[in-house]
C-alpha cells in the first residue's frame, strides 16, 4: 500500500472535488428551474402541451445519463451543433436533472388534497393566483427533501462526465492513477471524498423528510 501517494496528490483530488461541486451545484440550479417549467407544463390540461412535455420527461428519465452525454457530445455535431466537453456534460446533466425535478414538482403538486384547489377556486381565484398563493407554497415544502436527494444523485453522477473527459473528482483520480498506478488507494480515497460529501447530505435529507411528516 502506498498511502503516501494519496497524501501527495490530495490537493489535486480536492481540486477535482471543487469542480464536482461546482458542476453539481450549477446543474441543480438550472435543472430545478427547468424542472418547474416542465412540471407545470406537464400538469396542463391542454394535451398539446401536456403530452410533449411528458415525452421530454420520459426520455430524460428513461434513458441512461451516460447515453444522453454521448448523444450530445458525440452525436449532436452531426447536426452542426458542436459543444465542447464541459458544456456538453452540463447540458446533458441539466436535462437529466430537469426531467427528474419536473417529476418531483408534479408529484408534490398532485399529492396536495384536491380540496385545496377547489377551496381556492371557490374563493374566486384564477389559475395563477391559486398556484402562487395556495398550491406552490405548500408544494414547495414537499419538494425540498426529494430535491436534496436529487442533489446527492447529481454529485454522484458528475462522475460520468469524466468518461467524456471533463475534469472533476473522478477524472482527477484517473489522471493521478495514470501517473502513480496506485488505483486501489486512489479510488478508495475518491470514494471516501464522495462519501464525506454525500453522507451528511443524505442525513439532512432524512431529517427534512421527518420534519415534513411531523408537520
Amino acid at each position: 500500500m502506498h498511502w503516501d501517494i494519496v497524501t501527495k496528490n490530495l490537493w489535486y483530488l480536492l481540486w477535482g472535488t471543487k469542480s464536482t461541486l461546482q458542476i453539481a451545484g450549477g446543474v441543480l440550479i438550472m435543472g430545478t428551474i427547468l424542472g418547474f417549467f416542465l412540471g407545470l407544463l406537464r400538469l396542463s390540461n391542454n394535451p398539446l402541451i401536456g403530452y410533449p412535455t411528458r415525452g421530454v420527461m420520459e426520455v430524460t428519465r428513461g434513458t441512461p445519463l451516460i447515453m444522453q452525454m454521448f448523444f450530445i457530445f458525440f452525436g449532436l455535431p452531426a447536426l452542426g451543433l458542436e459543444l465542447p466537453k464541459y458544456p456538453a456534460a452540463v447540458l446533458a446533466m441539466t436535462l437529466f436533472a430537469g426531467g427528474n425535478a419536473a417529476e418531483i414538482v408534479r408529484g408534490a403538486i398532485q399529492s396536495l388534497p384536491k380540496g385545496q384547489t377547489e377551496a381556492a377556486k371557490s374563493l374566486g381565484m384564477n389559475y395563477s393566483q391559486t398556484m402562487t398563493f395556495v398550491i406552490l407554497p405548500q408544494a414547495v415544502r414537499r419538494m425540498i427533501p426529494p430535491m436534496m436527494g436529487l442533489f446527492t444523485t447529481l454529485i454522484k453522477d458528475t462522475s460520468l462526465a469524466a468518461i467524456i473527459g471533463v475534469f472533476e473528482l473522478t477524472r482527477a483520480t484517473q489522471e493521478t492513477i495514470e501517473r502513480t498506478f496506485a488505483s486501489f488507494e486512489l479510488y478508495l480515497t475518491a470514494a471516501f471524498i464522495y462519501f464525506v460529501i454525500c453522507y451528511p447530505l443524505s442525513l439532512l435529507t432524512q431529517q427534512a423528510e421527518k420534519s415534513l411528516h411531523a408537520a
Binding site: 446527492t152 454522484k156 453522477d157 458528475t158 462522475s159 460520468l160 469524466a162 468518461i163 473522478t170 483520480t173 484517473q174 492513477i177 496506485a182 488505483s183 486501489f184 479510488y187 478508495l188 475518491a190 470514494a191 464522495y194 462519501f195 454525500c198 453522507y199 443524505s202
Partner: peptide, 23 residues
C-alpha cells in the same frame, strides 16, 4: 447501505475492477 448509496457507482466499478487486483 450508507457506503454504497453515498458513493458513485462508477467509482465502485473502478474500485472493484482496477483497485481490487492490487490487493
Amino acid at each position: 447501505v450508507e457506503a454504497f448509496r453515498n458513493t458513485p457507482l462508477l467509482i465502485q466499478i473502478f474500485l472493484i475492477y482496477f483497485g481490487l487486483p492490487q490487493i
